[in-house]
Every structure is written in C-alpha cells, then in structure tokens.
Design a protein around this nucleic acid. Structure first.
Lengths: 143, 143
DNA sequence: TTTAAAACATGATAAAAATCATATTTAGGA
DNA sequence: TCCTAAATATGATTTTTATCATGTTTTAAA
C-alpha cells in the first residue's frame, strides 16, 4: 500500500503535529529515534517535505522542523503524494489498463468499494484532525 | 498492495483457469503475450507456482501448464502467499509493531475494516469461482 | 564578527525487486 | 533409440528503493 518512505513520512508528520509548533521546532536527530526511522534517511525525507511545502523548517541554531497552522490543514494524502509519485490509489489492483467500473477485472468489485472509503478518509481528515484524535486518546502513537 | 510478481501470478492463474485443462495444457510462450507479462519472468513464476503445488505442469513435447481440479479449488490468497512471502495482509499500515485493535495507530480504524473484508473475499472465493464469474460475463479479463 | 548548530543539496552505497539468459531434465514421436 | 519440445533449475543483470555520507548554506548567540 504505502512505500516505506511514505510510512516514514506519515510517522514524521504525525510526530510533528503532536510535538512541534511554530516556536517549538524539532531537530531530525531528536525525532529519528522516537519514530524509529534511520536518521539520515529521515533527514532526506523531511527536506523533501519541507521543499514541497508540506512541513516547515528553520535553519541554524535553534532551528528544526515544525508544522505551521497551514501545514496542519493538509491531509495525509498530500503527504504521500509528495513522497510516492504516481496515481497509485486509483490504479487497478492488477494494474490492468482497461479495468473500470463497466468492465471490472475479477478483483475490482472486491477491492474498490472499500478502498475508495479509505482514500476518502485520507483526503478528508486533516493532519490536525489526526493529532486531535491522538490527544484525545482515541488512537495511539508509539511509532 | 500486491507486488508486481503476485499480480503476474494472479493473472497467470486466472488465465489458466479459463483457458487450460488437464488435457489442454498451455505453454509459457503462448500465455506471456495474452496476459502481458515478460516471458522469462513468467516462466520463473509459473515454475515456482508449480513447485509449490498451486498449478500443475507437464514437461516435454505437448507439455505445458494447467490447473487440476484440486488446483482450481485453491484461492487467490494461496497464490499470493506463495509469491510474496510474509504476513503482509495482517501487518499494520504503518508497520507499527504495537498496533492492534486495543491500541490502534491513527490509520488502523480507517483501513482495517475494509481490508479485512477484502482479505476475506480472497480467502473465500476459489479460483474456480473466479473463472465462473468470468465465463458468466460478470467480470472481464483483458489482462 | 566569529563560531557553531542546524537544515539543505547532492551523490554514493546497499539491498531488494524485477528482468533476462542459459544449461539441464523430462517425455513424446519419428 | 534419437531428436526435439517443453518445463526446471540456477544464476546473472538491471532497475528501483532504501540507506548512508559529506560538503554547503543559513542563522542564533557569544
């Protein structure tokens, strides 16, 4: 479903959503271990997310990464779209070019309805929504 | 979701289900193009499926691959379990070790219910069921 | 204004997945 | 029996993904 990279990116963004703010930035080296992602790889991912405007950053001493108000209005779909290119969520499960609702492949009807629901949630819930859920103890982080 | 390899394997098995029989075997070179899979790669996959008892084969002239009655009682889950190792269908979407129904990760409840349904269908429907659906024109092959 | 701490940019290496190639074994038919 | 057509076994190559490493730029603070 998700590549390793986008799993890492999601974990990082959720971590920032819960733990960072405009004036409390977090350095790569302080989040790599808590979210269990190799530090150098995480750095690369965070830089890309930052470059694409998904997260914010500040250079130099006391610098680090954080989510702005605007950032946390984005969705996890925005996050994975930056990391994994290509429209993987709308592709046929068997990668059949011709597969569609009219001429469905054998797996289409088994998979698409539930998948659309999932995609919809990814598109509807903002990052902020997720961090709220975490803070309310409805879902859990140990990442 | 599925690796490239298991997509190929599923396509091959469905093709055999519809087109082959105990006494009408099909050669790699005659199925590679119809199902749109590189021939040498397909050969390797078919050989593995055969070795693991998912499909049947006969060597030598007039040989080829086919599904026995028993083979077609297997499920697509059996197919992918042979090709993609590891319990990928029950793993957390974020690969979190600690994620479970009691302490769900933020994506758990969005994904698991629909995913379980899909997994259930993969486990319940036999290959024969799928080829029936194809023959009845309910689902379509162009692979 | 100098120093050091941070992100940033870029490229190198490693591991995994996909693809290709080829020699060996089996079996049908002349 | 011999030839040939097929699967089988095995390994090599390529491509993609994941990971590591290192020099450059920015900026806070002494």
């Amino acid at each position: 479903m998700f590549s390793n990279s986008s799993k890492y990116a999601i974990k990082a963004v959720l971590f920032l959503a819960v733990n960072s703010s405009e004036d409390h930035r977090i350095m790569v080296k302080d989040m790599a271990e808590p979210i269990n992602v190799p530090q150098a790889y995480l750095a690369k991912l965070l830089q890309e997310l930052s470059r694409k405007g998904i997260i914010s950053s500040k250079k130099g001493p006391k610098g680090g990464f954080f989510l702005s108000k605007e950032n946390s209005q984005l969705t996890l779909m925005d996050v994975v779209n930056v990391i994994d290119a290509g429209d993987k969520f709308n592709a046929c499960l068997l990668s059949l070019e011709k597969c569609n609702a009219d001429k469905p492949c054998p797996l289409h009807d088994l998979a698409i309805p539930s998948r659309s629901k999932f995609i919809h949630s990814l598109n509807q819930n903002s990052i902020k929504d997720f961090s709220n859920q975490i803070e309310q103890g409805k879902v859990f982080l140990p990442l």
